[in-house]
Each structure stands twice: as structure tokens, then as C-alpha cells.
Design a protein around this nucleic acid. Structure first.
Length: 279
DNA sequence: ACGAGCTCCTGCTTGC
DNA sequence: TGCAAGCAGGAGCTCG
């Protein structure tokens, strides 16, 4: 499940392999990943052919590959999207959806099982695509303002984990790193946002930064085949997880058993001892 | 404007 | 063995 650390790992991989490369051919094998492009798969393919990639950029979980002409190829990996670098002779992975032939006779392949994400061409989007402009800064952005985000969150009538997952308030956080940062900051996922102090918010953002920086260093979290780097290698942050996916196992801080709760039709993992609703 | 819930997708796992 | 239901969840959408 690609969240900020996984998307950043992929961005770095793309930076290494596609920067300065020109696209010589594009094949769209499934229309769904390019559904956001109103001009259709054929036009999408034709339009990209002949363009040169500049250094890939990212905000939150959105990734874009600027073209030398000022437009950009915007990508969201959704649940299961992958970019892979292959040689043209390599066998196609299952669920390969789009193939970009590059001028060094390698291929950039977009592989996606569930197809929640997708690709589109953003006119003039090299700097910041307009399709990404509604997404808030992530904790690593230079314009991320912790005090302002804390104030915004505290003013809302919702609970903390819902806000952490809202990409228009703070971006890049998904279920894994929400649970990990809440555990680290000793906050229960369902705490009302208005009852959390500014210093607790600032500590939470610091936890997010720490845990996501460590995850980037480890190349992300690979639970299954759905997330791998552009060269096909898995990330190894799973072994460093403190609570996500660890129900029934001892809390690494106090030894209490980690619990799993239903939350927003998904799961929340937390330590019932360290993370209490009223504290 | 805000917040909550629904929906899109595939494939692995679980239960009858 | 086979089939159906459950589960994974990012984010755009709708509705109150």
C-alpha cells in the first residue's frame, strides 16, 4: 500500500532511471489507468511519444514526471500501482497496464492489480500539476507549517485519525503510518481533534516525520507483492513496525497486547495501554 | 463548508 | 472441490 515513503522510494528509483530519457513508444494495455485523461487511451499514448522526462517530483502520495516542454505525466499509485524498469525482452508482469519504451531500449512499465490509481497528462504541470494543487503539503515539504496544521485540526469536529488520513489537511499519510505515528505519540485514533493540545499535535507531526524518514531509509513497507521498488526489490520497513499488523503481539513499549479495531471500514491497530481515549 | 459514508477494483483468504 | 463472502484501502464523489 503505497503511502509517502513508498511513493518517495519509487520517485527516487524513477529519478535514477528515467530522467533525461525520451519516450519512443507508448502502449496502453488497459483503459482504466488512463480514465482521467478525457482524450482517450490512443491520444494519451500518441501525446507522450517523443517527449523527454525531467526529474520526477512528489507531493504526498502523488507523483509526477515533468516533461522538458513544461507538461507532466501525473501518477497516483492507488492501492497497488507500481512503476517498473525492465528491458524490452523481460516477460510482462501480470497486470501490466501501460508500457513506455525509452530511448535507451529499456521500458518503463505501469503495473496495477486493483487499478484504483491512474495516469494523466497535465498541461503546464511540470512545477505543480493543477490536478495535485488541492493536496496539502506533506511533513517533508518546506512549506509544511506544523503550527497552522495543528490549529486547523484542533478547530474541526472530527477525530484525529480521520484528519491524518485527509490529504487536504496533511498529505502522504495512509493507514500504516497513521497508526505508527499515533502509537509513537501515544494518541488513541479516535480522540476528538479539539481535545488534543498544540504540543501533542507538534509531537505527532514529529513522530510522522521520524517514522516516515525511517521507512524511506528502509525502502518502504512491502506486505505482499503489491508494493516493490522500480527494480522489483521489496522494502524492509515491515520488521520495524510498532503496531500496524501486530494484533495480539506485545506492545514494544509496555508489553500489552496490540489490538485491532474496525475503523472507517478498515483496521486500526493500537496499544490499549499506551493509547487511551481519555487521558 | 464540513464531515461521514459509499464506490471503484482484483485477488487472496476464509467458511460452508 | 467449488463457490461466495470477506478483506485489503486511496481518494473522489454524494448527501445531509
Amino acid at each position: 500500500m503505497p503511502e509517502l515513503p513508498e511513493v518517495e522510494t519509487i520517485r527516487r528509483g524513477l529519478e535514477k532511471f528515467v530522467t533525461g530519457r525520451t519516450v519512443t513508444k507508448v502502449q496502453v494495455l488497459h483503459p482504466r489507468p488512463v480514465r482521467w485523461d478525457e482524450s482517450g487511451p490512443e491520444h494519451f499514448a500518441r501525446s507522450i511519444t517523443g517527449r523527454e522526462f525531467k526529474t520526477p517530483a512528489r507531493r504526498g502520495k502523488y507523483l509526477w514526471l515533468p516533461f522538458a516542454d513544461g507538461d507532466a505525466l501525473v501518477a497516483h499509485l492507488g492501492m497497488s500501482g507500481q512503476f517498473r524498469i525492465n528491458s524490452a525482452e523481460d516477460e510482462l508482469a501480470r497486470n501490466t497496464r501501460v508500457i513506455f519504451d525509452l530511448d535507451d531500449s529499456t521500458q518503463l512499465r505501469f503495473v496495477d492489480q486493483r487499478m484504483f490509481g491512474g495516469l494523466l497528462i497535465s498541461e503546464g504541470g511540470a512545477q505543480l500539476p493543477k490536478e495535485v494543487s488541492h493536496i496539502a503539503a506533506d511533513v517533508f515539504d518546506t512549506d509544511f507549517n506544523p503550527a497552522a496544521v495543528a490549529e486547523d485540526m484542533a478547530s474541526r469536529r472530527s477525530t484525529i485519525k480521520r484528519l491524518l488520513l485527509n490529504q487536504q489537511i496533511i498529505s502522504g499519510v495512509g493507514n500504516i503510518y497513521a497508526d505508527e505515528s499515533l502509537w509513537s505519540a501515544k494518541l488513541h485514533y479516535d480522540r476528538p481533534a479539539g481535545q488534543i493540545s498544540e504540543s501533542e499535535y507538534l509531537a505527532l507531526f514529529q513522530s510522522l516525520k521520524t517514522v516516515m524518514a525511517a521507512a524511506i531509509k528502509a525502502g518502504g513497507t512491502s506486505f505482499d507483492e503489491l508494493y516493490v521498488n522500480v527494480d522489483g526489490s521489496a522494502g524492509y520497513f515491515e520488521r520495524e513496525l510498532s503496531c500496524y499488523g501486530r494484533q495480539g503481539k506485545p506492545c514494544k513499549r509496555c508489553g500489552e497486547k496490540i489490538e485491532r479495531a474496525k475503523f472507517m471500514n478498515r483496521s486500526s491497530y493500537f496499544c490499549p495501554q499506551c493509547q487511551q481515549l481519555d487521558s
